[in-house]
Write a protein that binds this DNA or RNA. Structure first.
Lengths: 198, 198
DNA sequence: CCTTTATTTCTACAAGTGTTGAATATGTCT
DNA sequence: AGACATATTCAACACTTGTAGAAATAAAGG
């Protein structure tokens, strides 16, 4: 894939290298973590010179930030929740989280979690994007007390589930079918949201 | 703390540098993660020459492994569980996890989670130590189905809770008292262990 | 006392890192 | 056509990394 080219502007500008770089970077950050993802690796993986990465994104930190995309499907899901009866919250919300993951933002989440392990700024991004912009609004739409605590617990569950499955790679350890796993996941969400707390 | 010394064997060998190094390393791995924890930093933090770290532990990976200590208090806790009625499992087990964390192995857990983000070997250690040697035995002592699934969910909860609280640093976000947090935590564990699954 | 062994430091190497300067080729605007 | 901006590459700098060689000092054993 690494096509050798001479320096200079290409004849037809339909390549969109920036997008290629972003794509390669997103994958590498999710697979290797922040430190082990080097500019040179990203460049090589995108079939591009390292300097081009710097040209487009300035520095490594900004490159990482550029790879983070907040899921969009969440807005409409929140609206639906207020109408649903309390007993179905767990199932509904875990469905939303499941969908959000499948729709491509799972890679972003893994990248952010991995980066958080070494970059405090990434940890801050986790708090902002996934807690404040995602889970807290969801919980805020419901009629419960201790909203922050429940939202934090949801984020813990989300991070932990992603950690064990995508980073530790525990899949092959569990023989249960996906349907059963989702059922348990939903039950936990339901507990987090509707457990009586004194 | 950094006492300058000349090369050569010290007069009194009551210093136990290896222990000092291990102590400093454990703290740094937990605070900075695997990559950002350099041999030189560990050495400086222990008031010691970098080569001495290599002398005692061979290389960085073995140094990390040496800092990992599996909690001991768990064995006796497991024995107690079989006698307890099902409705109290959540409370009991979350108590065990809470105690295990407070007793110094929290730092180890944080270190392992951080390292897992960049070192697959560390992720494997998480699976072995916390899932196979800790949570799976606990669940195995109980009369439930889908033991692996429930154990994995417990490990997810444990990792996620540690991640949000120790790495993301979400403490100040939650105004709920510790008692309330523990109550919710216990309820989740109870759900994981006793939820009916088809 | 003399050899051996354990502990500790100094020095340095080879590799890899993020990042920059300068050059080159193409497109775009006046 | 000429001036300027954009896209791209090559080469390199300054720094940090894990790690190794060799030496210095003191204890231990004969």
């Amino acid at each position: 894939m690494t096509v050798k080219r001479s320096p200079g502007r290409p004849r037809s500008s339909n390549s969109d290298r920036a997008q290629q770089i972003l794509h390669a970077a997103g994958r590498l950050f999710a697979d290797l973590g922040y430190d082990k993802t080097t500019i040179r690796l990203v460049a090589e993986s995108a079939g591009v010179d390292p300097k081009l990465v710097m040209h487009y994104f300035g520095n490594k930190q900004r490159l990482f930030i550029a790879t983070v995309k907040v899921p969009r499907e969440v807005g409409k899901a929140i609206a639906l929740l207020k109408l649903a009866p309390k007993s179905t919250w767990g199932k509904r919300i875990s469905e939303v989280i499941w969908i959000a993951q499948k729709s491509g933002s799972l890679q972003t989440l893994v990248g952010v979690i991995r980066a958080s392990a070494s970059e405090p700024e990434a940890a801050e991004m986790f708090r902002q994007f996934y807690l404040e912009n995602l889970l807290l609004p969801i919980v805020s739409g419901l009629e419960v007390d201790h909203k922050e605590l429940r939202a934090v617990m949801m984020s813990s569950l989300m991070a932990g589930y992603t950690f064990t499955h995508q980073i530790v790679g525990i899949e092959d350890f569990v023989t249960a079918k996906e349907k059963t796993r989702k059922q348990l996941f939903a039950a936990i969400v339901q507990t987090i949201l509707s457990q009586d707390l004194k």
